[in-house]
């Protein structure tokens, strides 16, 4: 019964997301939707390791930016199409996460966070300075757009934002599915064990490194695919895709929304993407003010809502269910 309700709820959400662009009157609104969905995917992939195994990879955008570069620089020469490029970037980033993870997970949690951040800085500096390969600050231009082969008609090049939106939705579905299956199964319990006490987890036969790697690689593959999407959507890849401000935004989204909670992370990403757009309608807020407000919100949430905004939802839901739980007191 309860499972049935859940499925219906998910189907409703999916249906809503499919219909949504039909309500959008301008490309601007569709772009806002695309950005929102991208931030959801970005944040979910980050939260897999930061929120669940406790490995705060401050260099997470590396997988996004390098994933984008892989699609821009390597995929065309291999003659890969949209999905092929996505898979290539996802695979390459998964592999990069495996190799770097084996090295990075030997060091302490603190060193891991700062070491990965160091890696992000290196990646951006390299992208900026290796003109011959990346074009440096001039960016890698003219990334091919996706071409769809629809039976019956010729190949169609995707240009319209709406169509990009529909290409992005399955990626969101996949990200949610992977996140859900990893964190809600017994693996999720091992994740929690590793995060809460690595030593004790080892004493119970759980090998911490395996689970850290699993979360790290899954997150990297997802975000690598998103980087590939971004490259084929904007058709330009710049060193700014490797910026540290992505890391800051991820931290704001995840820690304001609620680390380790899918609902919280999605909520955080939606608020983060939509709030400035909503503010724009009322008044013109300069970026510096926007960031300042985000910073303050982050500090306030950390101080007063340790589990993020998600804890508010949780409390509200519990109040709704209140009567039911009380009617069924714990017999044992």
């Amino acid at each position: 019964m309860k499972r049935g309700v859940q499925i219906v709820l998910w189907l409703l959400v999916a249906g809503f997301l499919v219909i949504l662009p039909q309500l959008a009157t301008t490309n601007y609104l569709v772009n806002v939707m695309i950005t929102t969905v991208m931030w959801i995917i970005f944040a979910l992939s980050f939260d897999l390791s930061a929120g669940h195994v406790g490995a705060v990879s401050l260099g997470h955008p590396v997988f996004y930016g390098v994933g984008a570069y892989v699609t821009a620089l390597v995929a065309p020469s291999l003659g890969l199409d949209f999905i092929g490029s996505l898979l290539l970037s996802a695979f390459a980033m998964g592999l990069l996460a495996l190799v770097s993870g084996i090295a990075f997970f030997r060091i302490s949690e603190v060193s891991f966070a700062i070491g990965t951040l160091g890696a992000l800085i290196i990646a951006q500096l390299l992208a900026n300075n290796a003109y011959d390969i990346t074009g440096g600050p001039m960016c890698t231009q003219n990334v091919p757009r996706p071409v769809l082969h629809i039976p019956g008609s010729g190949p169609v090049t995707v240009v319209e934002p709406v169509h990009y939106y529909y290409l992005l939705l399955p990626l969101l579905g996949l990200a949610i599915l992977i996140y859900w299956r990893l964190t809600q199964s017994r693996i999720g319990r091992a994740f929690a064990a590793v995060r809460q006490d690595e030593v004790r987890a080892s004493a119970m036969g759980i090998y911490p490194k395996r689970y850290k790697l699993l979360a790290f690689i899954a997150g990297a593959a997802i975000i690598g695919a998103l980087g590939s999407f971004q490259a084929q959507y904007i058709t330009v890849v710049c060193p700014s895709e490797l910026t540290i401000s992505y890391t800051l935004n991820l931290l704001i989204i995840v820690f304001v929304g609620g680390a380790g909670s899918m609902r919280g992370v999605i909520l955080g990403a939606v608020l983060f993407s939509l709030l400035p757009r909503l503010l724009e309608i009322v008044t013109d807020v300069p970026p510096a003010w926007q960031q300042l407000i985000y910073g303050l919100i982050l500090l306030i949430v950390i101080r007063f809502l340790p589990e993020g905004l998600d804890s508010l939802i949780e409390r509200a839901l519990q109040r709704l269910r209140g009567t039911r739980t009380e009617a069924k007191p714990d017999a044992a």
Binding site: V56, I252, L292, G295, L298, L299, I302, R303
Partner: peptide, 11 residues
């Protein structure tokens, strides 16, 4: 705590 200091940095 580290995230909080990042918040301070942003502010």
């Amino acid at each position: 705590q580290a995230v909080a200091t990042l918040g301070i940095s942003i502010v």
